[in-house]
Design a protein around this nucleic acid. Structure first.
Length: 425
RNA sequence: GGAAGCUUGGCAGAGCGGUUGAAUGCAACGGUCUUGAAAACCGUCGAGGGUGCGAGCCCUCCGUGAGUUCGAAUCUCACAGCUUCCGCCA
C-alpha cells in the first residue's frame, strides 16, 4: 500500500510513476473521494467533539445535583446526524482503502523502463551451458526413462493436470535438494529456520499483496463460512509474522528461511508450459525473507540475490541474473531480480528464483514497524527471494546432468545428502 | 464435538455507566548521584488519524461486530481467540 499522503501531495507525480508499471491511476476519482472525505471527517469530528463535551457537562451537573433536562434535549438531537455522518464517512474510508489497496508499489528509480519480460535487463551470466555430444532429453523423458520416477499420469489420476508424482531416487533427490538449500542458508547465510502454516487467512494474504487483486491466482479453502488460502509462496506466512509488530531497531535485520509447498491456480496460463513440471499447481520452494531497516533494503536485495545465486553456483548450474523492467516488476515490488537457470531441452534460461525488495509497501499493509533512533515508529522494508524453487531446480539438474544412457549424475554438493553419485533406473 | 473460565497499554495487573486513554508495579528511555556500574531519587513513557505555518486543538481505539444510553473498558447480544477438563485423533 502506498502512503496516502503521497497521493494527497503529488497525485500527478505518483500517477506518472505508476504508468511505468502500466497502471492507470484514476486521479479524478481519488481527488473526489479525498475531498468528500476531508469535508465529512471534519464535520463528523466536530459533532463528536460536541457530543463528548456536552456529555461531560451533563455528568458534572448531575454530580452537583442540578437539573439537566434542557441540555439533554439539546444533545439528543445530535444523535441521528452524527450516526448518519459516521456511516457516510465509513463508506468513504472503505472506498478510499479499496482504491489504495489496488494500487501497485512504486518502482525504485534504477528499474529500467519496459513493457514486458522481453525488455528485462541481463545483469550477469554465470557458468557456461554444457555441450552435449548426444541427443539430449527433457526432464519428462528422462523421468519416464528412469522407471517413471516422475509420473504425471499418476498425479493426474489423483488431482488432475499440472501435478506430478516423484518416486524412489528422484523423490530422494528432491528431498536432498531441499535439505541442501535450507542448510546452506542457515549455516552459511545466517538465516533462521522457520516452520510455518501453509494455509493463511485473508488478512495475511492482503498483507503481502496477494489480496484483493490476485485472488484468482490462489487456491481457497473453506472452513465453515470462513476461508483460508493455500500459500502461493512462503513469503506470505514469513513476512506476516511481523504484521502488527513494532520492532526495536537493533532487532533488524531479521533473516528467515523456510521450506514449504506452494500452491498456484495458474489461472490464465492455459497452454503455457503444459508439459513437464515447470508450471504446476503445487511445488516446493525454499524461501528467504528479510525484514530490514529502510536504509538497508537495496543492499539487502543484492545480498538475498547473492544467496540464491550461491545455491546455483554450488550446484554448478548455468544461470543469468535479470533485472526486471518496469512493466514486468510485480505488484508489491519496488525492484526485482529474477534468476534464470539454463534448461538444455528448451535451449533457454527459465526463471528459478525471484528476489524482490518490497520497500515499505507490504509493511504498510500489515503494519510492520520499528522504533527508529528518534523514537518514532517507522515502517520496515521487506524482501524475499526464492532460494530456490525446488521443482524447477530438480528439472535443471536432471537436464543439465543427464548422461547419454539416460542416467543422471548427482551434483557433487548433493552427494552427502543423497548418498550416491548417479541415478539410474 | 461437550463443559467451565478468561480476553485492558511491551509485560503483569486495577478499573461504582459520567473530567479514565485508562491507577499501580515491572520493563524501557532521559537525568541526578557514582572513578565506573548497581542501588536510590527525579522525569518521560500506547497506537492510529484529522486540522493548522506552528505552539496547539480535536477525533478514534480496552478481542471483533452490533445494540442500550445524553454518555460504555464498565450494561445487552452475536462472533472470534485463549486456557483448563472430557471425548476423538496424526
Amino acid at each position: 500500500m502506498l502512503d496516502i499522503n503521497l497521493l494527497r501531495n503529488d497525485l500527478d507525480g505518483v500517477a506518472k510513476q505508476l504508468q511505468l508499471k502500466g497502471f492507470n491511476l484514476d486521479v479524478v476519482k481519488f481527488s473526489q473521494l479525498e475531498a468528500q472525505r476531508k469535508e465529512l471527517q471534519i464535520k463528523t469530528e466536530e459533532l463528536q467533539a460536541k457530543r463528548n463535551s456536552t456529555s461531560k457537562q451533563i455528568g458534572m451537573l448531575k454530580s452537583k445535583g442540578e437539573n439537566t433536562s434542557s441540555i439533554m434535549t439539546e444533545v439528543a438531537s445530535l444523535g441521528d446526524e452524527l450516526k448518519n455522518n459516521e456511516n457516510q464517512l465509513n463508506v468513504l474510508h472503505q472506498e478510499l482503502t479499496q482504491l489504495l489497496s489496488n494500487i501497485p508499489n512504486l518502482l525504485n528509480e534504477v528499474v529500467p523502463f519496459g513493457r514486458d519480460e522481453t525488455q528485462n535487463k541481463e545483469v550477469r551470466r554465470v557458468g557456461v551451458p554444457r555441450d552435449f555430444d548426444f541427443e539430449i532429453r527433457d526432464h519428462v523423458d528422462l523421468g519416464y526413462g528412469l522407471n517413471k520416477q516422475i509420473d504425471f499420469e499418476l498425479a493426474s489420476k489423483l488431482s488432475g493436470s499440472r501435478f506430478y508424482v516423484l518416486k524412489d531416487k528422484i523423490a530422494k533427490l528432491h528431498r536432498a535438494l531441499t535439505q541442501f538449500m535450507l542448510n546452506t542458508h542457515i549455516d552459511e547465510h545466517g538465516y533462521t529456520e522457520m516452520y510455518v502454516p501453509f494455509l493463511v487467512n485473508a488478512k495475511s494474504a492482503f498483507g503481502t499483496g496477494q489480496l484483493p487483486k490476485f485472488e484468482e491466482d490462489l487456491f481457497k479453502t473453506s472452513k465453515g463460512d470462513e476461508s483460508l488460502y493455500l500459500i502461493p509462496t512462503a513469503e506470505v506466512p514469513l513476512t506476516n509474522l511481523f504484521a502488527d509488530t513494532i520492532l526495536k531497531e537493533d532487532e533488524l535485520p531479521i533473516k528467515m528461511t523456510t521450506h514449504t509447498p506452494c500452491f498456484r491456480s495458474e489461472a490464465g496460463s492455459y497452454g503455457r508450459d503444459t508439459r513437464g513440471m515447470i508450471r504446476v499447481h503445487q511445488f516446493d520452494k525454499v524461501e528467504m525473507v528479510q525484514i530490514v531497516h529502510p536504509d538497508k533494503s537495496l543492499d539487502a536485495l543484492e545480498e538475498i540475490t547473492a544467496h540464491a545465486e550461491n545455491i546455483l553456483r554450488k550446484l554448478r548450474l548455468p544461470y543469468r541474473v535479470m533485472l526486471l523492467c518496469s512493466g514486468d516488476t510485480g505488484f508489491s515490488a519496488a525492484k526485482t531480480y529474477d534468476l534464470e537457470v539454463w534448461i538444455p531441452s528448451q535451449g533457454t534460461y527459465r526463471e528459478i528464483s525471484s528476489c524482490s525488495c518490497m520497500s515499505d509497501f507490504q509493511a504498510r499493509r500489515m503494519q510492520a514497524r520499528f522504533k527508529n533512533a528518534n523514537g518514532k515508529n517507522e515502517f520496515v522494508h521487506t524482501l524475499n527471494g526464492s532460494g530456490l524453487a525446488v521443482g524447477r531446480t530438480l528439472v535443471a539438474i536432471l537436464e543439465n546432468y543427464q548422461n547419454s544412457d539416460g542416467s543422471i549424475t548427482v551434483p557433487e554438493v548433493l552427494r552427502s545428502y543423497f548418498g550416491a553419485d548417479v541415478i539410474t533406473s
